[in-house]
Write a protein that binds this DNA or RNA. Structure first.
Lengths: 238, 238
DNA sequence: CGACAAGTTGATGTTACTCAAAAGTGGTGG
DNA sequence: CCACCACTTTTGAGTAACATCAACTTGTCG
């Protein structure tokens, strides 16, 4: 749809599916070929309209997006974050209606997700695992919003993003691009941008996290993990 | 596993699947027969341990349960509520690990969910729709926790429960059994029980909602819907 | 250079939490 | 039938976390 500059890392995102299940050569080729049909979406544009039929499932090749819910009085909550390698619009039922809208947070490149051929393995299994992972992060988001302080929410978010990005890029977990504004972080974490700003300053003063010009640098990953896991670590129980 | 008293309404919950997709006679019979293998779980007992292999998917026939996450320092967040007719432990991938623990909030009767025979329709479709519905309520829970006041959260929760229960029982949406303690509500809504108590008193004084002896009576459904929809109604957008 | 978005700061207000104790409720056994 | 227990609900007073409002600064890009 739009002009594009080549980007060598684009193959990575689609390759993520290969990390989730073992794909045969036919499926790998299908993933490769699907890159031909990529589509660019400008920042702030809708990817998916809430309540509409889902057109076709896609893979985020590059850029960040999110699922949002907007209240009538203007409040906005970001329900989940979508980063390269994530799927969007994959529905398992036959009558797919989007439960939430999705918006591009940066410029995003999507490519269509190939139809799985063998039920129960290969691509089909990869999509299922991807869905399970998405659900896992929804649970994490609920625990974050319900029972963590602003300070903890931010720490936990950065740890999650570090994990998710490094799983795709094989880069470090403590140093990664972060294109969200503080306003966007606030909408994701159920806070105000002013408060996010103050907490980020606190992290900086403590030399735990450095956020600058679109990049997060976790200075002391161990301390941060302790901080979150120590009190928040996720344990089931009665 | 345990002694049981007969309960004529038990068939209802399993029948909910019939509301989600059209089932053939074989599938209906399978649902009926599965009631023979029901299993009782006492209140406060674990149904599913986090991180363990999921044994077998089940349908909640009666009683209420929830998915929980417990923090190391004792904080607890209820991630989602499970009411009669809901499925638990249904996984679409081949390697099912429970992402969250599940706990019985009241005595619960479970029965095994029959294996679907025809992919893409019948029971299989009903399970997929049930999963999509569950995801929908997760999104709603996120929006509630992230951007609603305590007062709004409670109103929204009662509306949700009214919807979900009446879909199964065909009973009224404004009058239903509600076996949760205020403490449990607090864990579900990310509040303290003291604050839940104060908000419930406010609703009572305003003659909007009456909660007594395990029953919720919404006195003014229209006003409550307005209150929530007016400001919170769920609309997508950039 | 000018304009616009993003980040920063301070003062003030409100929501919801904390702690602690009292009062109500239901079930159990003597 | 009553006394007792554990649990839940209710109440009050004080406090902390986060929101709000409004201005100011910094950065970015044409």
């Amino acid at each position: 749809m739009a002009e594009r500059k080549p980007d060598p890392s684009e193959g990575r995102a689609a390759a993520r599916l290969g990390l989730l299940a073992s794909l045969d050569t036919g499926e790998l080729r299908a993933l490769d070929e699907t890159l031909e049909f990529r589509q660019q979406i400008a920042a702030h544009h809708m990817i998916l309209e809430e309540g509409c039929r889902v057109s076709s499932p896609s893979i985020i090749v590059s850029g960040w997006a999110c699922r949002t819910r907007i209240f009538l009085d203007g409040r906005r909550q970001i329900l989940s974050l979508l980063v390269p390698g994530d799927l969007i619009g994959v529905c398992r039922q036959s009558d797919p209606i989007a439960a939430t809208g999705a918006v591009a947070l940066t410029d995003v490149i999507l490519c269509p997700a190939p139809k799985p051929e063998h039920p129960g393995r290969g691509l089909s299994e990869a999509y299922a695992r991807s869905g399970a992972l998405e659900e896992f992060y929804l649970f994490r988001q609920i625990a974050r919003l319900g029972r963590m302080s602003a300070y903890e929410r931010i720490a936990d978010l950065f740890l999650e993003i570090g994990e998710r990005l490094s799983a795709v890029t094989h880069g470090p977990r403590d140093h990664f691009p972060f294109p969200l504004t503080q306003e966007t972080m606030a909408d994701l974490l159920g806070l105000t941008s002013v408060h996010v700003n103050r907490m980020l300053q606190l992290f900086r003063r403590q030399e735990l996290i450095e956020v600058r010009s679109g990049t997060v640098h976790i200075r002391d990953l161990g301390a941060l993990v302790n901080l979150v896991e120590h009190r928040c670590a996720i344990v089931s129980g009665a």
